[in-house]
Every structure is written in C-alpha cells, then in structure tokens.
Design a binder for these strands. Structure first.
Lengths: 153, 153
DNA sequence: TGTGAAAACCTCGTAGT
DNA sequence: ACTACGAGGTTTTCACA
C-alpha cells in the first residue's frame, strides 16, 4: 500500500511532469527536500518508469488507428521470437498483446491512412505466417490516457 | 513535412523528456538557443502535447490488462454521451475507441486481477445498456509505447 | 525532516553571420 | 533562421544540522 502523499505525487506527475518540486511539495504538504526525496525514491523503485513527451497523433500525421487481431497455427518459441522482433521493429505498431481466447494477438497500429496501413500489413505478412488477420478501424478515440489508476498501489 | 532536426528532437523527447536542452542541441547540431526555440515552437504548435511521468503498471498493482469489445443497439447521441461520461469517470479504462465493423467499441482496462475487473464490468453494465460484451484477457504485453512514428510528420 | 546554499538548467535578450 | 554569449531567474540537488 502506497503512502497517500506518494500517490498524490504520482497522480500529479502522471498528468504533468513539468510541475516543479516546490509546487508538488505545497500540494502534498511537505518540505521541498522531503518531497524531492520521495520522488527520487519512486524513481529508484521503478514506480516512475520514465518521463516522456507525448506527441499529438494527428499533428504528427498518424491520425488513423487500426486494431489488428491476429491468429497463427505456428505455436513455437521461434515463431514468438520472430513475432516479437517484428513488433519491435515496426514503429507504427504501438501496442501488442498476446491474448486468451480465439484471437491470439491484438495490435494497435497508428498510420496516416489506409495506404500506409496496407504497407504495414504487407510487411507483417511477408515476415510472419498468420492463419488469420482481422482489422478494425477506429472511427473515434473516446479515451486515451497514460495515467493508470493508483488506488491499488 | 517536419524538419529533420525537429524530428530528432521529438524522437529524443518521446523516449526521455528529461534530457537537457544543451544535450539535445549537441545531438542535433544546433546551438542551445536555436534548439530551445524549436522546442518552444513545437510546444506552441501542440505537437508536443504534454510531458508526463509514466508509472510502471505492475509496480502500481494493475498488472492485468483486459480488452473489452462492446456492442449496443442504442445508437443515439444521448447514449454516446452517457458512454463517453462513463469512460471518463472510470480510471481503470485507459483507452476507448469506436470501431467499424461488428464490434462497436473497444476498451482497454487495467486492473489488479479478475475480481476488480468484475467490479468494473458491473459498474459499466449498471450505467449503460449493452447488447453484447466480450472480454479478452491479455497474457503478455509484447509492446507498449507512447512513442509514435514521426516519419509522416 | 527541514534549512540553506551551490550547481545545473531554463529562458530569453542582444549582437553578429 | 542560425550562432554565440551571457545575464537573471528558477529549479534541482544534496550536505549538514
């Protein structure tokens, strides 16, 4: 169970990592150094994994999101490793999960439009065997956040 | 088309937003002030949407990811607005998309385990009408990145 | 924990190319 | 539009009480 002040620090930094330690200290009712040490500790502990800049998808011309469900009959470690490699090497693939149920993998892909999606698709099937590929195009992003709930931490 | 140096700045900041402007300037072969002005411009333009801290999911005790496919027969604006509200208010729901095809919506939910997922599920169906809800549990996260491809920007 | 001071960094003006 | 310099303010960082 995380300290309530640590939680509030994390909540704030999840929303905006540019807030100064002094402000954070005020918010949680701590001295600057105490607050700073807590942040350091949270970084050490790996709870804060990174501080990153989020780039606007549309402004970066990758406004289209496609979900791809994938199935394979090749259930070997080698295949998995090859798959992993392809995932890592294609930057348009931003998320990839191995699932339970009849869909083996689910990918989230961001592209400028269908033409590029097609190119990514072709690249994937040229490098890996799939028995089935189903794509779902996103019409609207209703929610996307990097902030995870902290009430269980 | 984005300048190659802007692209490299963004690429770097997408990976780590803590690198000092001076280092960034070295990397892209610019003076500190020129580099700083570019970053400012990228922020103004909204290309850099935010700088946030990423919290480790497992360490925050939300190691389980569930995808939920949802269908409804209620295709009214009111329903959409209600849906949107529920999405916004449940922090365990970190992503939500409206899709083409036979699945209407796809949600990504992070929870500590099945019990909490069940609670979230119940909360959802108590507040909204669905004709169908299918959940896929993630066994493994093969890739998750907030860094989007910049080659089209 | 808190105080405080040094170091690092950001921010931006100015001048020169 | 970029370089180079630099002042001034803010923020981080940490030694020590």
């Amino acid at each position: 169970m995380l300290d309530i002040r640590d939680r509030r620090i994390l909540e704030t930094l999840q929303a905006d990592a540019t807030v100064p330690v002094a402000d954070l200290a005020d918010m949680v009712g701590l001295s600057v150094s105490a607050c700073w040490r807590r942040i350091k500790a949270l970084e050490e502990a790996g709870l804060i994994a990174a501080r990153v800049a989020l780039v606007d998808r549309r402004k970066a011309n990758v406004g289209m999101t496609v979900f791809v469900g994938v199935r394979t009959s090749r259930h070997s470690i080698e295949w998995l490793e090859a798959f992993r490699k392809v995932m890592a090497e294609i930057p348009e693939i931003v998320e990839a999960y191995r699932l339970t149920g009849d869909m083996d993998y689910l990918l989230r892909i961001v592209v400028p439009g269908v033409e590029v999606y097609d190119a990514v698709y072709k690249q994937m099937i040229s490098r890996l065997d799939f028995t089935d590929v189903t794509s779902f195009i996103s019409m609207e992003e209703l929610k996307y956040t990097t902030a995870i709930p902290l009430r269980y931490a």
